[in-house]
Amino acid sequence: MRQQIKVEVAVGSLVLCGVLALVFMALKVSGLTLDTARQDFQVEAYFGDIGGLKPRSKVTLAGVAVGRVVSIDLDEQWFEARVVLALDARLRDLLSEDTAAAIQTAGLLGDNYISLTPGVEEARLQPGGVIRDTQSALILEQLINQFISGSLGD
């Protein structure tokens, strides 16, 4: 009887560890976090085409995640995508006003994310500021269409 209880406790512990691992993996994949004390500041960037960029997509600097996309909406005056980024507070005094933002793809068909490239100006990017140097997403379907129409036109 005691041996059966030990086996049941061991199996129950193993199942509990498996469930916790699945929850952890789901949070990592979705980009959600349980860290509510994180300090950040928000800036805006405008793109002609955001491709598959979504809210909560990561923002990187030199390949290191330094923020997230907060929201995406349409600028009705210029018909561009307005993307609000939440960046880590330690970047507040490091990024210059001429910082560039480009939408990249992780792998050939992976998720889109924003990659930042620091500039060289002395003036710093302030909370609520705008990143003006942006590069839109590279759309695979458009490239294929250009290749097909270019090669068929010859």
Results as ranks from 00 to 15, higher is better:
22 L>Q: 13
146 Q>W: 10
133 D>L: 12
90 R>S: 13
35 D>C: 04
7 V>E: 14
115 S>G: 09
118 P>D: 03
34 L>P: 05
27 L>E: 09
145 N>W: 06
41 F>G: 02
98 D>W: 02
131 I>N: 02
29 V>E: 14
52 G>D: 15
28 K>D: 10
140 L>E: 06
146 Q>H: 13
131 I>P: 02
117 T>A: 12
140 L>W: 01
151 S>F: 11
123 A>C: 02
63 G>N: 01
4 Q>R: 13
20 L>E: 05
120 V>E: 15
45 A>M: 03
125 L>H: 06
100 A>R: 07
52 G>S: 15
113 Y>W: 06
59 V>H: 07
26 A>Q: 12
99 T>P: 04
9 V>S: 11
65 A>W: 00
15 V>C: 05
40 D>W: 07
91 L>M: 12
4 Q>Y: 08
63 G>P: 05
30 S>T: 08
97 E>Q: 10
87 L>F: 01
40 D>N: 15
83 V>P: 04
80 E>R: 14
124 R>Y: 01
123 A>G: 02
49 D>R: 09
98 D>Q: 05
29 V>A: 14
95 L>A: 03
22 L>C: 14
65 A>T: 14
116 L>W: 01
138 L>A: 07
36 T>P: 03
99 T>K: 05
45 A>I: 05
27 L>D: 09
154 D>R: 15
35 D>K: 06
110 G>L: 04
135 Q>F: 00
71 S>T: 12
77 Q>L: 12
1 M>W: 00
7 V>H: 11
8 E>R: 07
22 L>P: 05
8 E>Y: 00
74 L>A: 13
6 K>M: 09
68 R>N: 13
40 D>M: 15
27 L>T: 09
21 A>M: 11
110 G>Y: 06
94 L>M: 13
134 T>K: 03
13 S>Y: 00
59 V>G: 10
50 I>E: 08
38 R>C: 00
99 T>E: 06
119 G>N: 02
149 S>R: 11
94 L>T: 13
60 T>G: 13
108 L>K: 10
2 R>N: 08
39 Q>W: 06
127 P>F: 04
29 V>Q: 15
36 T>M: 05
4 Q>W: 04
18 G>H: 01
72 I>R: 07
45 A>N: 03
138 L>F: 02
26 A>N: 14
66 V>E: 12
104 Q>D: 08
139 I>F: 08
117 T>K: 11
119 G>F: 00
55 P>E: 08
125 L>E: 02
60 T>P: 09
20 L>G: 05
45 A>W: 02
129 G>T: 04
72 I>L: 10
49 D>I: 01
152 L>W: 01
